[in-house]
Amino acid sequence: MILTNIDSVPGKTIVQHMGLVQGSTIRAKHIGRDIMAGLKNLVGGELRGYTELLQESRDEALARMTDQARLLGANAIINVRFATSSVAQGASEILAYGTAVRVE
């Protein structure tokens, strides 16, 4: 599965469009990470726990999107976009969407 965020797949030709595909996940942060983050807030710097949490969620959203594209018989997704929103205090939704296509 080839993913790009431009309207083509460089080096290949699009032969068929399969429509919009999307994948999303909603994750909550857990209390241990929150306490560490609270401490880190005093001195500043990277919060590795959160970086990993959001990276995992994003990978999950991408995996769900590619699964959907595979079911449609596509072998590439173009114009991939991401959207993030807080749905509740301490929980966020990560959404990935794009256009499934068949390339040769």
Binding site: V9, G11, A37, N41, G44, G45, E46, L47, Y50, T51
Partner: peptide, 19 residues
């Protein structure tokens, strides 16, 4: 030049400010 491969690249960081 002809393109051999295209793929999605992502990078992220969560950062906080100090007191």
């Amino acid at each position: 030049r002809p393109v051999a491969r295209a793929s999605l690249a992502v990078g992220s960081v969560v950062i906080s400010t100090d007191y």
